[in-house]
Amino acid sequence: MNTSGTLQHHLEPLGFGLSQLFVLNTGSRHWAGRNGPLHDERGQRRLGSILRPSMLLGPLAGQHWSNEGVSFFYQAATPEAKQLAFVQAQQHAHSDVCFPYPPLGAHREEFVCPTSFWECDDELAEQLNIDEAHFREQCVTVLRERLKPGALIHDPACSTGKLIAHLARALPHCLCLGSDLSASMIRHASRHYTGANIGFRQADAAQASPACDALIIRFLNAEVVTRRDAEHLLRSLLGDLKPGGVALVFGHTPVLPAVSWVVQALGMTLQSALASRPGQLELFQFYLLTRPPA
């Protein structure tokens, strides 16, 4: 049995599991953690974006990289201390979660899903839609209070289209545009979601995007792009945000860019980096960024 406060060690082998390691900054302390599977809406245990106190290892004492993997050194902690850490993180405006290591492929390169993975069918669409339910509600909560009638919301990697369609229904006074590089995703979205204030187009997020009042950025993540490409895309996309606009950055898998660094470099403001569902002792990455008014 581990005694609270004693030094412990977790070794994560080089490979896919590296992206499950995270560091929680509660505002007063850094905690080591490892994401693990939870039950989804269908009762299946799957790895997701929602973090729970039981996933914490303990207060971080150090980390090392070697040919064997990544070592987290941490102090053993009680379940009560882990729960308190989540309470503190929910209450502290500048708390955040960092996933420092991307998943690695067979040759220790950053793993990125092949293009064929994004060929949309009903099974993939259903799973993606389940995984993003908490993000949809959080987007509505944030944008409802911030956008004026006629505001343009752009989701430059709209996937199945369900999230931007959810926003179109919840915010009927706003215009909603969903774009995606995948033709099959756009076909799926256009077939399932229609309305007077929503439209879809096939487009590359790396190319020019329309100036907008709100940006939904949810693809700069592990398994989707490399960390270098993610930072480049984040800088490019934020350039399309109008003065006074808001950007929301999140995703099914860990967010790759150092968001606070990019935000500072662009003269924007990071309002918060974490969110949770009402009444739940949990956390998930959800960056709220704003561009100063003109």
Rank of each mutant, 00 (worst) to 15 (best):
E132W: 02
E123F: 02
L104R: 10
I153E: 05
I153N: 05
T115Q: 09
L175V: 06
E145G: 09
R146N: 08
S159A: 14
H94K: 11
A168T: 02
D180G: 07
S190Q: 13
S179K: 01
P100I: 12
L181P: 00
A85Y: 06
P103R: 05
P100T: 09
R144W: 03
L177C: 04
H188C: 03
H134F: 14
A168D: 03
P114A: 04
H92G: 05
I130D: 12
A133N: 04
P172G: 10
D155E: 12
T160F: 00
S159R: 09
V140T: 11
C139L: 11
S95A: 15
R191Q: 14
S95E: 09
L128F: 05
Q88I: 07
H94S: 11
R144Q: 13
P79F: 12
F135V: 08
K148C: 15
F117A: 05
Q127A: 14
F135C: 07
M185H: 15
G150C: 08
C139E: 05
T141A: 08
S184T: 15
A189L: 06
L147C: 12
P100R: 08
L152T: 04
A151C: 14
A85L: 08
Y193W: 15
L124A: 02
Q127M: 12
L128K: 01
A170Y: 02
A157P: 06
T194K: 15
G195I: 09
I153Q: 01
A189V: 03
S116Q: 11
S159I: 00
C139W: 02
L147Q: 06
Q88M: 13
R108V: 02
E126A: 15
V112F: 04
Q138C: 10
C174Q: 00
P79S: 10
L128W: 01
E126W: 07
A183H: 02
L175H: 09
R136E: 11
A157R: 01
